[in-house]
Simulated scan of single mutants.
Amino acid sequence: MTSLAPYVRILAQGKGRARSMTQDEAESAMALMLSGAPAPEAVGAILMLLRMKGETAPEIAGFTAAARGALPGGWPGPAPDLDWPSYAAGRTRGLPWFLLSARLVARLGHRVLLHGWNSHQSAHASVRASLGDLGIPVCQTTAAAVQALQARNIAYLPLETLSPALMRLLGLREVLGLRSCVNTVLRMLNPGSAPAAVQGVFHPPYRELQADAAQLLGQPALSVLKGGGGEFEHHPTKDIAIFGLRDGAPWTGTTGIHADGRRRLAETLSDPADLAAIWQGRKTDDFAEAVVISTAALALDTLGVADPEATAARAWAARHDTPAQPEFTP
């Protein structure tokens, strides 16, 4: 079958008759959309009908399962320990301090796979532009990412090389003028099948939606946070609710408060070079460092690390003692 018409009818056949798709139906619909065979009008209809209706956990789980199954070549090596998606636009956020958190987690020996697309970010807050200065390899293939994880415990996969088909669906935002459920699917993607995952959201209702979908997919450990600009990044002056999974079961928690005062994430250091300067100790900023440490602690908690806050703080204090990492060319 190459037509999406049956799935459009499910969602749009009228009051009292329309319904949500089952997980299997959603998986089949997404597989078709990723194949490129259906008419683009039908793809747009599916995405906008879901936006108007509101996605369900089975629909997101089905879409995600199809997206994982369509990844070119699969995952060619050992699974990473932690999946860390980065797909927020970040128009108003500050620097991506969470990248230092991810590197801190990797320094502790956990293999962290970052993947993403951040097309709307301003130049000063760009995730992609900051990776090189932080020693995070940008990999053009999954095989290169596996090698980077083995050599450095951290890697970044751009969406456009990870899955051109998903990149094409994400790009429909420019055509349709609205965000679609593809953004949620990308956060759920977990291309390396990591047993632990962290996800950021901008709108609070998606915390429970993504946690419920992840449970349907058999994800063991997950933390979903309303974070800075929609990224998995903790604002240290706020005690924020977290939703997710532990041992595959629904779980909720709170972040705690790690800094005093009231301050926006954008109201701190703003030069992209400041990211590396903070890591290297050439600059200090109590607020930025509280962001890094508290975010890393949440990731460590997801990984099942005992006393994650103290572990993150000790690792931050000892980050300059890290042995020189081997050169790696992805």
Rank of each mutant, 00 (worst) to 15 (best):
P191F: 04
P96E: 06
P58K: 09
S126N: 10
D81G: 11
V43H: 03
A312Y: 03
A213G: 05
L275G: 01
G77K: 01
Q23K: 14
L131S: 02
R17S: 09
T237F: 04
D321R: 13
H110F: 08
G171Y: 05
S126R: 11
L217H: 08
A211Y: 12
R111P: 02
T2H: 14
A312L: 09
I46H: 01
S163G: 15
S35R: 09
G228W: 05
P78K: 06
L275I: 01
A211V: 03
V146I: 04
G73V: 13
G73C: 15
P38E: 01
L300N: 05
A66K: 03
C181Y: 14
G248T: 13
T64L: 03
G135N: 08
G171D: 13
Y7N: 01
L186N: 12
Q140L: 05
C181D: 06
L149K: 05
A241Q: 03
R9A: 12
A57M: 14
V201M: 07
Q219G: 06
T311Q: 13
P58S: 12
W75I: 02
T22N: 08
R19T: 09
Y87D: 09
A70S: 11
L300S: 08
T254D: 13
Q215T: 07
P205I: 12
I240C: 06
L134K: 11
A125T: 00
G36H: 10
D321Y: 02
R314C: 07
F202K: 10
V146W: 01
A18S: 06
W75V: 00
K15N: 05
S270P: 00
P58D: 06
T254N: 13
A197N: 04
A249E: 12
S163C: 14
T64F: 00
P6N: 12
R263N: 11
G304E: 05
A197R: 01
M1S: 13
G90W: 01
G54C: 08
K226H: 04
S119C: 10
G200M: 08
